[in-house]
């Protein structure tokens, strides 16, 4: 049981973070809180990729003659670059989302979902 917990703890955290983000996106009424939920969901997915590429007893993926040339001694670079670009793109798209929040506030005077729906009618 303890063994299972250690070898799968990262996936449990991934599921937990993703569900937390999803819940916030559906249930929270405040638009900024929804954006925070979105980013938490995103970090859950990033954690999934990075922890898949982690290796026991390995070092960072910068080739050094001291650690030899075998691939087993270095962490996986491929999952890392996919997520590195995803973080930067994530902040750019988060900017678009926050811009929409500001625009909605300008138009309706509130960032509460229920109030916006009231004014919509």
């Amino acid at each position: 049981m303890f063994e299972y917990l250690i070898t799968n703890y990262n996936y449990m955290v991934v599921v937990f973070l993703m569900m937390m983000g999803l819940w916030a996106m559906i249930a929270k009424k405040n638009l900024v809180k929804k954006c925070i939920g979105l980013v938490i969901f995103q970090t859950g997915i990033i954690l999934f990729y990075i922890s898949m590429g982690a290796k026991n007893n390995s070092t960072i993926p910068i080739i050094d003659p001291k650690y030899g040339e075998a691939a087993i001694n270095y962490a996986n670079p491929l999952t890392q670059i996919l997520m590195l670009t995803a973080i930067v793109v994530g902040v750019a798209t988060l900017g678009v989302g926050l811009m929409l929040v500001q625009r909605i506030y300008k138009e309706y005077g509130s960032i509460n979902e229920d109030r916006i729906l009231e004014k919509f009618k």
Binding site: V39, I50, A54, Y74, I87, V91, L98, Q102
Partner: peptide
Amino acid sequence: MGAVDVAFTEAAVGAGVSTIFFIATVFHT
């Protein structure tokens, strides 16, 4: 987990710039 490049990006983007974006939005709403 050995992903130093990702950590560097996260420190600059996640902890730095995206927090400022959020603060700017809260400031104006």
